[in-house]
Design a protein around this nucleic acid. Structure first.
Lengths: 237, 237
DNA sequence: GATCGATGCGTATGAGATACGCTATTAAGC
DNA sequence: GCTTAATAGCGTATCTCATACGCATCGATC
């Protein structure tokens, strides 16, 4: 959560996230819409990477002129913010559960799934950005699910934050071709030439086993985090 | 960990991270060095943000021509990778401790401190990048500290990864002017106009207290993560 | 001192974001 | 129907950047 800028107050240029744009009566109706622009930009980023989202490329895809886009979004930076927030439109998909523990596990996996589907969004998420309405909606929904199974709201918020933070940090190695790279790295460490340089890493690399938790460290970590939260909560009751 | 590219094998352009460059006997000795370039780039990013690190700006600071830089780094993208890895040169600063628990806590705080000092590095860390030698060195050192106080190496690795992931995800709200923004956000939620839109968040916002864990959610989460790890490890013994 | 191999760097190129201003289009009011 | 105001679409120009290319320069080696 960073600058908010609802309406024209605050950061100004971020009013685009929260501001309700009035429907104009007069004037030419717009063929382009912000929604269409943002959706197409997300499609490009998903398929070709965020780097390939240029105003020109985007305009070509939409069959419009480059400068037309600026009638609907203030600039490229703001577009990226809108792209990110748009990912969290729609309902959170967390399986039904009777215990908050399982809700949190499901939430962590949802976050992972989101970033796996849109790898470009991870650096955006960790950059300086305002919290958008769709993101807030997601958090609100998951909070609702937690309170519905008996968790106090304030506790729910901190729990959601903690799981969210872990998921955000842990999803990077899950993205793209990292699995092979990790294996590559361990092979590299096993090479005698490098054993001396990183002795402790080399020792681990030497006796890694297929059933080792490193192999699925997202699930491993997720359960440890939830365990830790459970221990805290139960101790307070 | 992504493409490694040690030497010329693998990704090619990332050989710059691991490759030992030969000292040339002949030819003009270089006034510029990769180290100086990277250090100056880091200084710019720290002071003005990563966006302001342009080859021109950098060259001006170094008193050299723009194209001279390309004799020492292949390009801008690679420079950023080098900048990131350079942050982890030098020893890890984790206080002495007798129990692995405190080592992990100290490690988590070190990671936080690093990104607080260099906020631009967070999106770099979460982007697609190879693991560099300095980063590997950091992990190796902390692994050594853990094994020194009796933790099995394989367990140590997964524990370090888990804490690292949490810290990486949790450090963003700690950066820059986020504290005020969070407060702003809660004020926003308290506004009756928004209560209906995010009912659960609004309820929490209404009764947040100064001593609430949300106020220092990094420390809170860090301890929960380590609690969870401890529970797992003790259960296996 | 001649040579070779590396560095320093000016210039040119091309991509990208975006300010400006003109034109086209439509609803509202007459 | 005609005028007018408000808005969308967008071509052009400009500015910032990264970087390919090639020449000039410099020093250690021979």
């Amino acid at each position: 959560m960073l600058p908010l800028g609802r309406g024209e107050s605050g950061q100004g240029e971020y009013g685009l996230l929260w501001g309700d744009r009035p429907r104009p009566g007069r004037g030419r109706p717009s063929g382009l819409t912000r929604e269409r622009i943002v959706a197409e930009a997300v499609a490009i980023a998903d398929a070709e990477g965020l780097q390939k989202v240029s105003m020109k490329h985007l305009a070509d895809r939409l069959g419009s002129g480059v400068m037309s886009l600026y009638r609907h979004v203030p600039g490229k930076d703001e577009l990226v913010i809108l792209m990110y927030d748009s990912l969290m439109a729609g309902p959170v998909t967390v399986p039904e559960a009777d215990h908050w523990r399982d809700v949190l596990i499901g939430w962590g996996r949802s976050v992972r799934d989101l970033f796996q589907a849109h790898p470009w969004a991870l650096p955006v998420a960790t950059g300086d950005r305002p919290m958008g309405p769709h993101e807030a909606g997601w958090v609100d929904q998951i909070l609702g699910r937690l309170t519905a199974v008996g968790m106090p709201p304030a506790t729910g918020l901190i729990a959601v934050l903690t799981v969210d933070c872990f998921a955000l940090g842990a999803v990077r190695p899950e993205i793209g071709g990292s699995a092979e790279s990790t294996a590559d790295f361990f092979r590299f460490l096993a090479d005698p030439a490098n054993t001396g340089r990183f002795p402790h890493l080399a020792r681990v690399a030497a006796d890694i086993r297929p059933d080792d938790p490193v192999e699925d460290h997202f699930e491993f970590g997720l359960h440890r985090v939830v365990d830790g939260l459970q221990q805290y909560i139960e101790a307070r009751q």
